[in-house]
Design a protein around this nucleic acid. Structure first.
Lengths: 108, 108
DNA sequence: ACAATCGGTAAGTCTGTGCTTACCGTAAGC
DNA sequence: GCTTACGGTAAGCACAGACTTACCGATTGT
């Protein structure tokens, strides 16, 4: 069920930008916020959400906090997507392969 | 950029339930709504959003409209995720492989 | 033609939440 | 010990958007 949190998190544009920015490598909150059109507290709150979703990790370096992408964080979402993809394709294939179900009534 | 729409769409729990329900196969709006805790117009609106995001398709069967999962709809999201996954892993690896950058100053 | 079903749309409400300012704790440098 | 930088948290505001009811058009069957 943890993929739901990930989806909800990445659904927000700003939060997604924060996340994508971290792709370049670990960064502190201040640096992160300076490159975004929102205030530092906003970024801080987004980072908290991302952390709750397991998408990012955090470590202290002196007075600053460095956030980084958790390499396992996207795992659940990826697996969900893959399973969904497969099942949807199969359902789609089945749908095409039974063009005329004998018992079916379109317009009785 | 179309992955953004998909993420935003699937970020909403109800919309995700609608989408997941379609995984079983094409269904009409009424049937779809009967299995959910929200009204039919709500489902209709969610379906519209899903359609705008390219996640579902729609066809008319007499007076009812049957919605189905667009097998290509998740493509962009999947590709984005895969690329992201790879880049994040690489960045993570690079980070581990340079434990002591000579020019780096942690505490000057 | 009429009645009934299905479903999209409009209008309005209300909760969730993204953002800001202000404040405070903590760690580092003088 | 004092000052400064960094960043998390609280309180409050404002807007997006999820949901409902009411209405209407379209299609089907008698």
């Amino acid at each position: 069920m943890t993929y739901a949190k990930a989806l909800h998190c990445l659904g927000d544009p700003t939060r997604r930008r924060v996340f994508e920015r971290l792709r370049a490598g670990p960064q502190s909150v201040g640096v992160l916020a300076k490159g975004l059109p929102v205030s530092r507290p906003a970024v801080s709150q987004h980072l908290r959400a991302l952390k709750d979703a397991g998408l990012v990790g955090e470590r202290s370096e002196g007075t600053r906090r460095v956030y980084y992408i958790d390499p396992d964080g996207l795992g659940p979402l990826r697996r969900w997507l893959d399973r969904f993809w497969d099942e949807a394709l199969e359902a789609f294939k089945n749908e095409v392969e039974k063009p005329q179900d004998p018992g079916r009534r379109t317009n009785p």
